[in-house]
Amino acid sequence: MKHKVTVIGGGVIGLATAYALVREGQSVELIEARDSLASATSFANGGQLSYRYVAPLADAGVPWQALGWLLQGDSPLRLRLRLDPAQWRWLMAFMGACRRSVNRRNGAQLLELALHSQATLAHWRENDGLTDFAWRRNGKLVAFRSERAFARGREHVDTANQQVLDGTDLRALEPTLADVPFIGGVLTPDEEVADCHRFCERLAERLRACGQCRFLLGRPVTRLLAHADQVVALQVGEARVDVQRLVLCAGHRSAGLGLPGMHLPVYPLKGYSLTAPIAPKHRAPEVSITDYERKIVYARLDRQLRVAAMVDIVGFDESVDARRLQSMRRLALETLPNAADYGQAVEWAGMRPATPTGVPIIGATAYRNLWVNLGHGALGFTLACGSAERLARMMG
């Protein structure tokens, strides 16, 4: 049976969900608070589609490691405690998930979803002709500066899908790293890159052209109106929008739209990126690089280099912290000084909605016509297609 499905949220998760629903024969209405689609968290994320690097942040030893990071000036993690019960609940649940057995179980779930997402994106590209978003299968290199970190990295290598490289092999693979003091790395050849914002634009074009999707932009939803066990309408400004079926994909703002009996343990983790133009004179890496110790990723997206890093747990402050970006720019110049024009880089900060366990929330709720698809953290683009396809199948 064909139903009208209302999707709240116009980022990569909401747009992929709308696309998957339309492919399943549903009619979709997508509501986005901003005047443009994919203009917040999905605008300039890291660009790496790291399907085999999906281990949750919560793991044994992470709290102690995080304390060490907090004492560093260029720490990849920053925590600002607030008088916010939601932050404290999230942090306590995160601490509870910092156990090796929990990490392995959650990591297995994420890996399954990630590989499904990779297959789904391949199907959309090859069968639907969804192209022109800087997609490449260029491989991912996790590079190590210390013997200790390199030894840990080798312990978890999947020999069927990954290769261990010493310093000589690493530089032969990626000559732009000739002067960087990496002692070795782990290469995953079938990892991918793409431009998330351009991907969202291609999805929106397809959805507009299909005649089965209507967009309402610049319309923030402030309240869900329920009767008994069913959501009947949305409060959108002064207007009321009736709904038949509803999917909540509003990222870190979703928790504020919750209903009685519905707990959404999602909190924003702010991340940063620089998008620097690559001119003919520059020597940008072809393979995606993760600087393991510094927690910085580098991804070439056509004629641009995307540099991304940082996790700030600072509440709902969406402002761009100039000091964090200065730190990231300095580290990029130290590592890959000739890769791009960092002086012309576009700066970005985005609020990545994360659950304490790192596993997104996908599926039904206590309200029989309400589903959720949120909490993907830093893996939003990586998991978007698989999450959307999985939810569309559940709803069908």
Rank of each mutant, 00 (worst) to 15 (best):
M1F: 06
K4S: 11
T6W: 04
I8N: 01
G9D: 04
G10N: 03
G11M: 08
V12A: 03
G14E: 05
A16H: 01
T17F: 00
A18H: 04
Y19K: 01
V28P: 07
I31G: 07
I31E: 06
E32D: 10
R34T: 11
L37N: 05
S42V: 06
Y53Q: 13
V54N: 06
A55P: 00
P56Q: 08
L57P: 02
D59R: 12
A66S: 13
G68R: 14
G68H: 10
W69M: 14
P76W: 07
L77S: 10
L81T: 13
R82Q: 15
A86I: 01
W88H: 14
R89V: 04
L91D: 07
V102Y: 06
N103E: 14
R104W: 05
A108F: 02
A108R: 10
Q109R: 12
E112R: 07
H116D: 12
D132N: 12
A134D: 14
R136K: 11
R145H: 09
R152N: 12
G153E: 04
H156R: 15
V157M: 09
D158V: 01
Q163V: 11
L165F: 08
D166E: 08
G167E: 14
T168W: 04
T168G: 02
L173R: 15
V180A: 15
F182H: 09
I183D: 09
T188C: 02
T188A: 03
D190L: 13
D190K: 13
E191S: 08
D195M: 04
C200R: 00
E201H: 12
R206A: 14
C213W: 00
R214M: 08
V221S: 02
R223T: 09
L224A: 08
L225A: 03
A226E: 12
H227P: 00
H227Q: 15
A228D: 15
A228V: 07
Q230F: 00
V231P: 07
L234P: 04
G237L: 07
A239F: 00
D242W: 05
D242K: 10
V243F: 10
V243N: 02
R245H: 15
C249V: 04
C249M: 05
A250L: 02
H252G: 07
S254L: 05
G261R: 09
M262G: 04
L264K: 08
V266E: 00
Y267G: 08
P268N: 11
K270H: 04
S273P: 14
T275K: 01
T275R: 03
K281Y: 04
D291P: 01
Y292W: 10
K295R: 15
V297H: 04
Y298L: 05
R300L: 08
R300H: 09
L301F: 10
D302V: 10
R303M: 08
A309R: 00
V311Y: 01
V314W: 04
F316I: 00
D321G: 01
L331E: 10
A332P: 12
D341G: 05
Q344L: 15
A349C: 09
A349D: 01
M351Q: 05
R352P: 03
A354H: 03
A354F: 00
T355K: 03
P356V: 02
G358L: 02
P360R: 03
L370K: 11
W371E: 13
A378R: 03
L379N: 09
G380Y: 02
C385N: 10
C385F: 15
S387K: 12
S387C: 14
R390M: 11
